[in-house]
Amino acid sequence: MIIRTDRPLLLGSYARSGNHQSGFTMIEILVTLFILAIGLLGLAGLLFEGMRNNQGAYLRTQASILAYDMADRMRANGAEAEAGNYGGFSTANIQSTTPPTCASQSAGCTATDQVTLDQIEWTQQVEGTGNSMAMLPGGTGTIAYDAGTGIYTVTVQWDEASRGGDAGEAIAGDNSYSVRFSL
């Protein structure tokens, strides 16, 4: 076998020339990790905002349930409600959350005592006082009555972090739910 020495071997010259690249460089890996990190931060932001919106929807649903619960209580005690005896009430101003004694008696409550019982039970649900669990964080409820029109307004408010709008403005009234009705 004759070996020619005037031509370099292909394998040997290729390995010595430095033109062969094998694998990624450190800069390419760092750029890839940076892009991946930005994408993951965006995904985390979307998840956080989605959970916050879901919690806000849950609280608005609870407020709706509470407002309609009081409206139904007033409709059930129609004579007292038509007289306006439920109006001017706020859960923040209630003196005692102890139900009247008629609540535990078999004969039940009179229509006037039923107003007090309804207000106390509603306060316990809204604020979570007594042995009841609060349905809303920092919840308060008010009942207003317009004697001229005969319209009740039941409003439930709660504490919630305000959300920003499209242009960065705060959304007002996002933590309040009102029901207006007449008997």
Rank of each mutant, 00 (worst) to 15 (best):
M51W: 10
L59A: 08
V31D: 00
Y58Q: 11
M133S: 15
L183C: 05
I29E: 09
S90W: 02
N175A: 10
A134W: 01
S132R: 06
G141Y: 04
G150Q: 09
L40I: 13
L40P: 04
M51C: 05
T129M: 12
V156D: 01
Q157W: 05
T149K: 06
W158V: 02
Q125A: 14
L66A: 05
A134K: 00
E160G: 04
S106F: 10
G173D: 02
T142H: 01
S178N: 05
R60I: 02
A167K: 14
N54F: 15
V115M: 07
A15P: 07
Q95G: 06
N19T: 09
G56V: 05
G87W: 04
E169P: 00
A37L: 15
I151P: 01
G42A: 06
V154F: 05
T91Q: 02
L41V: 12
L11H: 04
N77E: 06
A161R: 11
F34P: 01
R75F: 04
Y152A: 01
Q125L: 15
F48C: 14
N53W: 15
G173V: 03
M70R: 00
L33A: 08
E28A: 05
S182M: 09
C109Y: 06
S96M: 06
A92T: 06
Q125V: 08
G56M: 05
L10H: 07
F34T: 14
T101R: 13
A107L: 14
S96F: 02
G78E: 10
A134Q: 03
G128K: 04
G39P: 03
A67H: 02
A147H: 11
M135S: 05
L183P: 00
D146V: 11
S162C: 08
M51E: 08
E80C: 13
E82S: 07
L33N: 08
L36A: 15
D118G: 03
T5Q: 12
V31F: 10
E28G: 03
S90V: 09
V115W: 04
M135E: 07
D174F: 04
G139Y: 00
A44V: 14
D113T: 09
M133W: 11
Q55R: 15
G84A: 14
G165P: 00
S17I: 00
L11N: 05
L43I: 11
A63H: 01
T140D: 10
L136N: 01
G130I: 01
A79C: 07
M133F: 13
A37M: 15
S13M: 09
